[in-house]
Each structure stands twice: as C-alpha cells, then as structure tokens.
Amino acid sequence: MNVFRFAGDMTHLISILVLLLKIYTTKSCSGISLKTQELYAVVFVTRYLDLVTDFISVYNTVMKVVFISSSLAIVWCIRRHKVVRRSYDKELDTFRHWLLVGACAVLALVVHEKFSFQEVCWAFSIYLEAVAILPQLVLLQRSGNVDNLTGQYVFFLGAYRAFYILNWIYRYYSEQHFTRWISCVSGIVQTALYADFFYYYFISWKNNSKLQLPA
C-alpha cells in the first residue's frame, strides 16, 4: 500500500459519501444519473468476486464491502425510495448504458490477463469503470446547472483514478515486475474523460461562479 493508492481510495470513499450526503440531506437525486450508478454497481460486483475467496487485508475487505453496499444502496434509493425517486431526471438520463456494458464485455473477452472467469470479469470491470461516468457527464451537460454536491461528487470520482495513476507509476518503479497495462491504460482513459469537467470545474472555482457545462 502506498500513499497514492491510499489517497485514491480515500478520495473514492469521499465521492461516495458526498453522493450519499446529497441524497440523504436533500432527499433528491436531481442531477444524478441512475445509469452511472447502475454501471458502478456492476463494476464493483464483477471486480470483487474474490471478496469471499481471497482475503488480502481487513482494509481491502472492508472497503470492498463498503463500495458494493453503497453502490447498491444508491441504485435502490433512486429506483425505489418513495421520495428520492420522484426527483430522478428520467427524461434527461437517456444514455444507452447497456451498450457500454456490451462493448466492455466483448473487449474483456478479447483482452485479458488470463482466460478465466474471474480474470475476464476483472478486466470487464476495469473497462466498464473507465466509461461508467459517461451517462453522468452527459446528464450534467443536459441539465446545465450543476449543484455543488453533485459537482463535488464528480470531481472526487475523477480525482481518485488520477491518484491511482500515480500509484501505478510508483509501483512500476518500486516493484520489479509490476506491469499491469489493462489497469493503467483504462485508468488513463477514465481520467481523460473527466478532463473537460475538471477544466470547467476549475474555472467555476477560480471565478467563484456556478459550475456551468457547455451544452
């Protein structure tokens, strides 16, 4: 465990806490893409299949349980909670995210480290995580105004993978045979997708103005 990875995990945890805070305090999910939350639930379930088979550390196990349970809880809230579900932007959140699932599944069947069920699922989850934010970014551009908590949620979600890239660079130089191209390439693509969001987020922060994404 190195400081970059720990910072990345904490940033990821903060993004989830910010989202839960928004939904819990405002009892609203306006501006939140249910499709992105569903994709993240799939990402965590397919990536942490080894949750019950391999024990790595208490930290690892606890974080996996937190990520799986929080993502499922958020999807449940937006779908089923009698108050929250009313504020879901159903007509704006129209990204065909199952296409992303299909494309990542095909890619995982072609590009993986080992052809085993767990490895293919792992590669699938890495690819899917890279594009999972797309429905959310599209929704933000369509809805125009971004409320603070939603903006912070997306910001932390993007920042966490950037810390992971530093972690991979660090591990590449500090461990002999650490070469994991699937995660690295996918992580760079994932962070790049946030580039324009980060730009507008920084501008709005600098001008102390409301975050506006060009439609």
Binding site: I56, S57, Y164, N167, E175, Q176, F178, S183
Partner: peptide, 10 residues
Amino acid sequence: LLEESIKDEL
C-alpha cells in the same frame, strides 16, 4: 518471490 498482484488494489 511473492509477486504482489494488482488484485490487491480496489
């Protein structure tokens, strides 16, 4: 040599 696999990452 225990190769710390990436699977120890979240």
